[in-house]
Amino acid sequence: MSRIAARFASLKGTRGALITYLQAYDPDPATSLAILRGLPGAGADIIEVGMPFTDPMADGPSIQLAAQRALKSGATLSRTLALVRDFRAEETATPIVLMGYYNPILSYGVASFCVEAASSGVDGLIIVDVPPEEADEIEPDAKAQGLDLIRLVAPTTDDSRLPKVLAATSGFVYYVSILGITGTRSASRESMAAEIPRIRAHTDLPIVIGFGIRTPAQAAEAAGIGDGAAVGTALVDVLAGSLDEHGRAKSDTVRRVLDAVRALAEEIRR
């Protein structure tokens, strides 16, 4: 069983999963690794690591700035993979999902990227700008390496399209709960409560709800309606708020981010 499947299986019937998102190398490699290492202990069930990109088209201002900080501190795709390897050296149970955009992967070489991602301990990929229509760009290589390809389902993904999207998905389904980019608005309980059963009717995969989940209460609510809640911008904002005026980490940056994760995890476990 894959790490992702095992994690959802172990939570089944008890509670939803907490999925955290932060970008690799934000704001610097050492801080980024320290946060990563602290995430499982703080209560993250699945860790999304953002792959920094100059033109993050589905992201709002917070994550755009995170990408700029990360790139400034030297992030590249191969360094992101190295970061995951360093994490994996000590932690083998928590799934890691890389999330980002296609061009750096294309530039790296899709086949070698998939080989090295898998050997570095990556479990799944979310590539925002590769929809099912372009799946053959990466699916064969990802599958060959046992990497899950997690796809986004949006409010605009209607019932006629859902089967096509879900057929191209493995690991879990990432439900984008709002029309919009990250960190801009939040979905209502009613809309999530209506949408998740619509998707469930088409799949047995776990459904994670993301985009617009900021507070512990929202996370708990989403994790109750779906099988997990993904929190990104809110954590990136905590990180950003902890930096000094030059954008450098301060002594309490790691602690503040992990405290925020802990607060989310506690509410989900309540």
């Binding site: 929809p131 372009e134 605009t156 209607d158």
Partner: peptide, 18 residues
């Protein structure tokens, strides 16, 4: 698929695809 040789295509987020 909107391709001219290897170029073109539809590399957009799912929200826009429909």
């Amino acid at each position: 698929r909107g391709r001219f040789g290897q170029f073109g295509g539809r590399f957009v987020a799912e929200t826009l695809m429909p």
